[in-house]
């Protein structure tokens, strides 16, 4: 069975189907269909309030969906929470550490809460980063606290890692380190990661898949490379042949309106874009792709499709 993004159900680590979640009148997720293939590192990108955190919280059984559902490694977390959570390592939005406990005590606690927790593995990861195990967690820097959170998540040896904007409060160096540790772990363990962020450049180099969430809906869900190759950017609003307009937004400098186009599958991106005299298209960066879809989702800029 084919799923969104070209993944098949047999290889899906995480599937959301018709997932809706409302908070009173505010719709956080609106019939979301999303598939995260096993072994992938998927970037879940969207502005603040797009529903990224809600989606991850539903996967963690912290929120109950109003309609539809999710399956984490084939298990519905709301119905079988223990079983689902055993398959998931979770890094919350803000590094949540116990102020009075040392780093080592965090690992001890994780081991006491999670039967399969590999404290040695987590300890090695922290050792590599030079984070003293006897240091109290409330004296760690933001980056170190985030690394502790990641080490705890990795120590569960879970097949799926859900990371809820872990980079948001980190400085550039700490972000890079975090991403590197994550990538090393995913590569060596063969696990799947869903990394949410509202900063595209943070996840560009780390992920092999992109899911754009805007206004509670999935705007795009495809491999990262495909997202780059099948989108072009022009200054004008006349569509290149065979291309579908996605959305328009203000370009860099805020003077020109840029339009993002999605090429028809199979089109050669090198030949497609020129549509008229003097008009040229350029390869869209990942940020452009995200901006285009978010603009379409928000209904801002020029709505061309």
């Amino acid at each position: 069975m084919a799923l969104a993004g070209g993944a098949s159900i047999g290889t899906a680590a995480l599937v959301a189907h018709g997932l809706s979640k409302r908070f009173k009148k505010k719709v956080a997720l609106d019939k979301v269909d999303l598939t995260v293939p096993a072994g992938s590192v998927t970037a879940l990108v969207g502005p603040n309030g797009a529903g990224k955190t809600t989606l991850i919280r539903v996967c963690m059984a912290f929120e109950r969906p109003n309609a539809g559902g999710v399956e984490v490694d084939g298990v519905d977390p709301w119905k079988h929470r223990s079983e689902a959570l055993r398959r998931v390592g979770y890094v919350p939005q803000t590094p949540a550490v116990y102020r009075g406990l040392s780093v080592e005590e965090h690992l001890s606690m994780a081991r006491s809460l999670h039967s399969g927790f590999d404290a040695d593995y987590a300890r090695r990861r922290l050792d590599q980063l030079g984070i003293p195990l006897d240091q109290r967690a409330d004296t760690l820097s933001g980056g170190q606290a985030a690394q502790l959170g990641l080490a705890v998540a990795l120590g569960t040896r879970a097949r799926i890692l859900l990371l809820d904007e872990p980079l948001a409060n980190l400085d550039p160096l700490a972000r890079r380190e975090f991403i590197q540790v994550l990538l090393d772990a995913v590569k060596s363990d063969g696990s799947t990661a869903l990394l949410s962020s509202h900063i595209v450049t943070d996840v560009e180099d780390a992920c092999d898949r992109l899911a754009i969430l805007g206004g509670g809906k999935v705007r795009l869900d495809c491999p990262l490379e495909e997202a780059r190759q099948t989108h072009r950017l022009t200054e004008a609003d006349s569509p290149p042949p065979g291309a579908t307009a996605v959305g328009s937004f203000l370009g860099k400098g805020g003077k020109t309106v840029m339009t993002l186009w999605r090429l028809a599958p199979g089109d050669d991106p090198g030949s497609a874009p020129n549509s008229g005299p003097g008009e040229t298209s350029e390869a869209a960066s990942l940020e452009d792709v995200v901006l285009g879809y978010l603009a379409a989702g928000r209904g801002i800029g020029l709505q061309l499709n």
Partner: peptide
């Protein structure tokens, strides 16, 4: 303090926690 999600994610059973 936001540590509940960390513990609850680690422990399948909140009641045991």
């Amino acid at each position: 303090t936001g540590t509940a999600p960390l513990s609850w994610a680690l422990s399948g059973s909140r009641r045991r926690w």
